[in-house]
Simulated assay, not measured.
Amino acid sequence: MKFFLSTLLALSLVPALGQSLPRREANPISPQVEAMYAKGLRFLATEQQANGAWIGRYSGEPGVVGLCVLAFLAHGEDPNHGPYAQNISKALNYILDKQKASNGYIGNSMYNHGFATLALAESYGVVDDPRLAPALSQAVELILSAQKRNRFDAWRYTPDSHDADTTVAGCQIVALLAARNAGLAVPDEAIEKGLAYLKRCRSAQGGIGYTSPSGEKPTLTAIGVTCFALAKKKEGKGFATSVEYLRENLNYRDKYYPYYFEYYMSQALFHADEELWENWNAKNIRYLGASQGRDGSWPDSKGKHFATAGALLSMALNYRFLPIYEK
């Protein structure tokens, strides 16, 4: 993976029924998780700039800003009147400002576009901002048109790319599924073709590779399992073998993209096997508790803001507020 976000490392609208952030009553959150999450959000809020972004090599990327929005929403923060409402609003303003009016493209890579689109989808219906509906519609249309131009029926770094990889493809698939969940008319064919590409990159052992079945990795496999699970495509031997592959790699840590891995691994295991997720989640909480800085951030070569958003989102299944996290 030679790019990260910019280079990485991700119709008609109807009312978004069910797009709310109800308080989660069952399975109370542990004090440790709540303390870590609250500390991380305070760090993000304090570090946010007036334009809605964060300072750093990658921290001004719309995709990173989108992940930060998701981190706030995933904690059940009221996006209109809560203590972090202005942070969410400023971040969404930044994303909207980065969207090209001509074609709906957000940022300068499909990673940025995918994660920013996901943030718009999860915000639509809960954030009181009439600009979100047309912006989300345009963003989805760009993802769909990019897929139609791609010879693999998938995605890579730009809307005009003719090659594909599983990280960019996974980012777009999740964004499309979130948009569908928000009420947009996303064609089944687009989802099916995207999943078919991921299947072609899955090895007999269940692992998923970057552009082919060879060189499979837990991070890539977690992306694939997340996509199939969210698409309600969990039947069949292929999905089961991928889950088993992740089971065999519960102690894996991605040394290059640790928080990107955790972000997807938490979702993959939660949707595939909740007992397996509980096992991994307990280990992840211990790991994050030991690595969180005094200022509430997590360190990473890609920047504290991306790392912190990723770390928080890897714990967000403990809250289960985001519609995309619903089973």
Rank of each mutant, 00 (worst) to 15 (best):
N93P: 03
A164M: 07
A139L: 09
A164I: 11
I191C: 01
N112I: 03
L184G: 04
D129E: 06
A190P: 05
S102C: 00
P134T: 07
Y94V: 06
W155H: 02
T166M: 04
S123F: 09
A133V: 15
A146N: 02
A154T: 10
S137Q: 13
I143L: 15
L144W: 04
G170M: 03
Y111G: 09
A178M: 09
Q147K: 08
N108K: 12
N112S: 15
L144Q: 07
A169Q: 10
S145K: 15
S161C: 04
T117P: 02
G107F: 10
V126T: 15
R156C: 00
R156S: 09
N93F: 06
K193Y: 03
D163V: 10
D128Y: 04
E141F: 04
L198E: 06
E189A: 14
I106A: 01
A164S: 15
G114C: 06
P159W: 12
V126Q: 01
A91K: 12
N103Y: 05
L184N: 02
L144F: 00
Y111C: 09
I143M: 11
A101Y: 00
F152L: 11
L198Y: 03
R151S: 05
N112L: 02
P134K: 09
V140A: 08
K148C: 05
K193H: 15
E189Q: 13
L118T: 15
R156W: 07
L132D: 05
K148P: 03
D97K: 14
L92E: 01
D160S: 14
A154K: 11
R131G: 00
A139F: 08
E141T: 14
K148G: 03
P130R: 11
P159M: 09
G183R: 13
T158F: 13
Y94I: 10
N103E: 11
D129Y: 12
T167D: 03
Q138H: 04
K193M: 03
A116F: 06
I106P: 05
S123H: 05
T167P: 05
F115T: 13
T166Q: 01
A178H: 00
K148Q: 14
Q172H: 07
R149Q: 14
L92P: 05
T158R: 14
W155D: 01
I143E: 02
I95H: 00
Y111F: 15
L198H: 06
A164G: 04
L118I: 03
A164C: 02
N93H: 11
R151I: 14
T158I: 11
E122F: 09
A133M: 07
G194E: 07
L195K: 12
A133E: 13
N181K: 15
L92I: 15
A139K: 07
L142Y: 08
R149I: 01
D160E: 14
G114S: 13
P187V: 12
Y111P: 06
A91M: 08
R151F: 05
S145E: 14
D153W: 14
N108I: 14
L120T: 08
A91P: 08
V168T: 15
V174P: 00
G183Y: 04
A139E: 05
D153K: 15
L195V: 10
L195F: 04
F115Q: 13
P159Q: 08
Y111K: 00
S109E: 01
D97G: 15
N181I: 08
Q172L: 13
E122G: 03
S161K: 10
A185I: 09
A179V: 13
